[in-house]
Design a protein around this nucleic acid. Structure first.
Length: 103
DNA sequence: AGACTGACATACC
DNA sequence: CGGTATGCCAGTC
């Protein structure tokens, strides 16, 4: 499953790999994802990697959200696309927030 | 080689 | 509850 790609660093590779390993309908936060690759503090770097996202459809980057359940952002199409994709996975949204039971 | 940026997180006011 | 401030990490200019 090596990602035969262009200028992709080891770090990003891990990020994409971890993201690929996320099952459909599941949501992961940047911090959670960062933690999975061994960099619990690299949430920002993770977001950076996804923003470049050389493998847009290859990696379900739309399953990554903020720690508080906010959508965050999306490079392809924008947040609305991300929300749509997530809703398609069975997840509901309340504005820019994931509709979990919360406040 | 150095500085700035960015799809984050946490804490504080 | 909301906005502001600081910290962290890796990438790119």
């Amino acid at each position: 499953m090596s990602i035969v790609n262009p200028p992709v660093t080891k770090f990003e590779e891990k990020v994409y790999a971890a993201l690929k390993r996320v099952p459909r309908g599941a949501l992961v936060t940047y911090g959670e994802l960062a933690r999975r690759i061994g960099h619990p503090r690299a949430a920002r770097a993770v977001g950076n990697a996804l923003n470049k996202n050389p493998f847009a459809p290859d990696v379900p980057c739309h399953r990554v959200i903020h720690a508080d359940g906010t959508i965050g952002g999306y490079g392809f199409g924008g947040v609305e696309t991300k929300k749509t994709l997530l809703q398609r996975e069975g997840i509901r949204f309340d504005g820019d927030r994931v509709a979990l039971n919360k406040s």
